[in-house]
């Protein structure tokens, strides 16, 4: 009889004894994988959204007076002393007026009798865009307002701060759900294997008398933990995929899609979650074997 067919025969025998605990464990592992990967999926999509928003982010520094051409290089250097930026654009009153007229569109006639001088001089700064810069944007803004001649800085503070907090909160949730995944996978699998071993205690003792090797006794138990991880991770990730498709089909209207271009977990991330689940469940079975199975 080949070792593999023996292993599977033994697994079938084990599942006859303890199928209820195996099903419960499978369900728990699947649910843990689903919860973790669900939050991870949101986190990844939010990161993508923030990166895209970062590309469009700009800070406008309103000035008391125009920066003369001769001092513009020095002004730029003062800005870049704090943080790397992609682009700095000096905007005259006339250019600002022109932009305002464009923005108002059909209502631009309200500006007809006005002189551009009511608008302040400004500098438009496009910072290097990444999440880290987003979280540091407030410091950058405080620095810019302290520059000589600067009156006010605008960049959509409230919205960006809230978004930053949301991403931080998501990061914490991802870490917590990761911890949940670790705990449930290791402990539930370990507990199930323990039940299997306890239900077979008498048989294991006789097997030892009959000369069963470590490989004979431990092999099926390790494979049982591995399979619980395999099926748990597969069903968890498949459930996430179907959930994702359902959300995409039911909740993503055109406006929503413009803001968040939803995408599923990249293959590398899915594979990592899958492998980690396998590893955790196998570790759970190894812990039980070491603790409860003295060959």
């Amino acid at each position: 009889m080949s070792y593999i067919s023996f292993i599977f025969g033994q697994l079938v025998r084990n599942s006859r004894h303890g199928w209820t605990s195996q099903v419960m464990t499978l369900f728990t592992v699947s649910l843990s994988v689903l919860i973790f990967s669900f939050f991870f999926l949101i986190y990844i999509n939010m990161q993508k959204a923030s990166s895209r928003l970062g590309n469009e982010l700009r800070l406008i520094v309103y000035l008391e007076q125009e920066v003369p051409e001769a001092f513009r290089q020095e002004f730029k250097k003062k800005i870049t002393d704090f943080d790397k930026v992609d682009k700095i654009v000096f905007i005259s009153r006339e250019e600002a007026f022109e932009r305002l007229t464009k923005q108002l569109g059909r209502d631009s006639d309200v500006l007809e009798d006005l002189d551009p001088s009511f608008l302040p001089y400004s500098v438009e700064i496009f910072p290097s865009s990444n999440l880290k810069s987003l979280t540091r944007i407030k410091d950058f803004s405080d620095y810019l307002v302290s520059l000589p001649g600067a009156v006010k800085v605008q960049y959509g503070q409230d919205w960006i701060e809230r978004f930053g907090y949301f991403i931080s909160l998501l990061r914490i949730i991802v870490i917590l759900s990761g911890a949940l995944l670790i705990l449930t996978s290791v402990f539930m699998v370990s507990y199930t294997i323990r039940l299997t071993l306890e239900s077979r205690q008498e048989e294991l003792e006789i097997l030892r008398f009959l000369g069963a090797t470590d490989r004979y006794i431990r092999g099926p138990v390790i494979v049982e933990g591995f399979l619980l991880g395999l099926f748990g991770a597969c069903s968890g990730l498949l459930s996430l995929f179907f959930l994702f498709q359902w959300i995409k089909n039911h909740f993503s209207g055109p406006a929503f899609m413009n803001l968040f271009e939803l995408s599923f977990l990249p293959l590398a991330n899915s594979a990592t979650i899958f492998l980690i689940s396998l590893l955790l469940c196998s570790s759970g079975s190894l812990i039980s074997i070491r603790k409860y199975l003295k060959v």
């Binding site: 048989e203 006789i206 008398f209 000369g211 090797t213 470590d214």
Partner: peptide, 20 residues
């Protein structure tokens, strides 16, 4: 491991049978 292998070559009928 050697002991386990050697046990496979010894048949033992126990006084208390040790059956399942």
């Amino acid at each position: 491991h050697d002991l386990q292998k050697m046990r496979q070559h010894i048949g033992v009928a126990y006084q208390d049978f040790r059956l399942l």
